[in-house]
């Protein structure tokens, strides 16, 4: 069965989606990611969707779900590299993904993620 690789970088998890997402793959990713966060105790998740060209309402909902699940497991999620066409489609579908943090590319996303983890830890 096909899997999307989840890489560990310190206390962050890095997911780059390089293939066209279909529904089953998205569900597998959801399973894999939650167990990985649980196993590693990661504090941040970065999802790179710069290669993703097609997003439907299901995918939009999956992204929102994944981020909500990570939040419950005490990890903040950041979505990076969304293409203009994808952003327009999501907005037209009414999926505004409230609560998901976004960044332009992986580098800036990592910066943002690390600073938000640092702030969260400072508060504890």
């Amino acid at each position: 069965m096909e899997h999307i690789p989840i890489l560990r970088m310190g206390d962050c998890l890095l997911i780059t989606i390089q293939v066209e997402m279909h529904d089953r793959l998205a569900l597998t990713l959801q399973d894999d990611l939650t167990s990985k966060i649980y196993a590693t105790g990661a504090k941040g998740v970065l999802i790179d969707i710069s290669a993703l060209e097609i997003v439907d309402s299901f995918m939009g909902r999956m992204l929102a779900n994944i981020s909500a699940m990570a939040r419950v497991l005490d990890a903040s999620t950041i979505l990076v590299g969304m293409r203009p066409a994808v952003a327009i489609t999501l907005v037209e579908l009414g999926l505004e993904l409230p609560g998901i943090h976004t960044a332009l590319d992986v580098e800036r996303g990592m910066q943002k993620l690390r600073s938000s983890i640092a702030t969260a830890q400072a508060h504890e």
Binding site: L79, A87, V91
Partner: peptide, 12 residues
């Protein structure tokens, strides 16, 4: 609002 949301989704 739509434009603003799309920009936010892109990460800006």
């Amino acid at each position: 609002m739509k434009t603003v949301t799309a920009i936010r989704l892109m990460g800006a």
